[in-house]
Write a protein that binds this DNA or RNA. Structure first.
Lengths: 264, 264
DNA sequence: TAGTGGTCTAGACCACATA
DNA sequence: ATGTGGTCTAGACCACTAC
């Protein structure tokens, strides 16, 4: 069988939404096409977060390619943290819940002490209501100015010390009916709640970090002074297809915590 | 040929310096062993930064394994940025020089403007001399308190604006004879100079970030005020075998720049 | 045209988990 | 005992680069 023609019988239109870059005649290796098809199934919710996806052999049969090709496709998905392989058990859809790697996107760590003790952060929801998106928030979320968004403001405390003040904006259309109760009482990461309650899987994020001083109101919320410098962390969180689904603007108190980053 | 026995004829002692974790009888896949051998050659300087390493076929013949096994070993080295593959040309030892990805470890980006215009940063060396390592610097660099280290203090300016104040500590034994002239006048990243002049390849780094206020002296150097919050970035840079070879403590002015980070 | 890395296949066997 | 992913091999062909 000639390569690169196998999947043209598949009823999926050639939606190559990679980027706006002009590509050469769009050569795409077979395993990339397979990866795209698996991605579509993930997006469509055929397999839900935490669930087992079909074995490599099954997928190979389904797509009429060799197991090795499916393997390479899954390898890339695993490298992007979209699925998780477990030897002897199978391949699972990655979830923000029930891993030891909870709080994947939170890089703030205590200066001393064992591990991510953040699991038991106290959440204080100060606000949770719909509003109209300002121009810059709309732009970042890919909405139009004035579109409805949900605004959440909360304080996270570790060991009784207020440490993170966060403003979160979410598109109302997707997170319809989100309440302060949900934000406060869901056991586990907020992103796990988004998966369970709204079927939204956050797969990656980008952060811009600065040093700032809080205004008096912010300083009060964090029980600190207006002369205590804070980390300003703006996070844009993306779901499938590089679609932005959340904007967070956080202020981190770094007296006894630090933001950790590994470079390679 | 039974797998996992192929390389025992090689004159390399089983230096498995992975971690202090107790491992099960130390099963190691063939490709990992190959990876280790290639790594040893990189460390030993058999192939220098920027140079072409032997083709997959040659390495396969040398190690008496299949090309596919060598490929998997190189795949991992490429994923760790230790080598760079270029289709049709070969596999090259990654260098901090002569890439478009210069300044690999510098995450500070201008808020506006095209790309990493940082290439033409002005470097102002304020200090470069040997000193005795304090307890905490010695600990971080894996030295003993009082061992000789070279201390460099410099200011980086972008477009005429002082933006980064950095203190750098390096083990004197390795960077013997480093001068302020070298630090100031080498064209290209400092890490490229370390490769060329001292044969030290920095392969990864870890950063701890906080928000701080400068003291009056630091504020003067950055031509700012003592009430302007700054990013404090402590970077430990590692060469092969997870050996720490540099400590940097930087203060970043984030008025018109931000620290960027991608999470996945 | 020759050589490189990149893709694809097929089959064998190993390690791990579960029943 | 069975099924999963993990490793290893061998060979074929493709795409890119250089000569």
């Amino acid at each position: 069988m000639p390569p690169n023609t196998a999947l043209l019988t598949d009823p999926s239109p050639p939606l190559r939404s990679d980027s706006a870059v002009v590509q050469t005649p769009a050569f795409s290796p077979l395993y990339q096409q397979i990866k795209g098809l698996i991605l579509q199934s993930l997006q469509a919710g055929e397999w839900k977060p935490g669930e087992l996806i079909p074995s490599e052999m099954e997928l190979a049969a389904r797509f009429k390619v060799s197991q090795g090709t499916v393997r390479k496709a899954i390898d890339e998905l695993a490298a992007e943290n979209l699925v998780t392989r477990r030897q002897g058990k199978g391949t699972f859809v990655t979830t923000h819940n029930e891993e030891q790697v909870q709080y994947r996107f939170l890089q703030l760590h205590p200066d001393v002490g064992q591990q991510q003790d953040e699991g038991r952060a106290q959440r204080n929801i100060m606000e949770c209501r719909r509003m109209r998106a300002s121009a810059d928030i709309a732009r970042i979320l890919g909405l139009r100015t004035g579109d409805s968004v949900i605004h959440v403001r909360r304080v996270l405390s570790f060991g009784g010390t207020p440490t993170i003040l966060e403003d979160i904006w979410l598109p109302s259309q997707v997170f319809k009916g989100l309440t302060a109760q949900q934000m406060a009482h869901y056991p586990g990461p907020t992103y796990a709640m988004f998966e369970m309650e709204y079927g939204v899987r956050m797969v990656r994020a980008e952060e811009k970090i600065r040093a700032v001083l809080p205004d008096t109101q912010q300083a009060q919320w964090l029980k600190t002074t207006a002369t205590t410098p804070l980390l300003s962390v703006e996070r844009v969180t993306y779901t499938y297809n590089d679609k932005p689904m959340e904007l967070r603007r956080g202020l981190y108190l770094t007296d006894s915590h630090h933001y950790r980053n590994a470079l390679s």
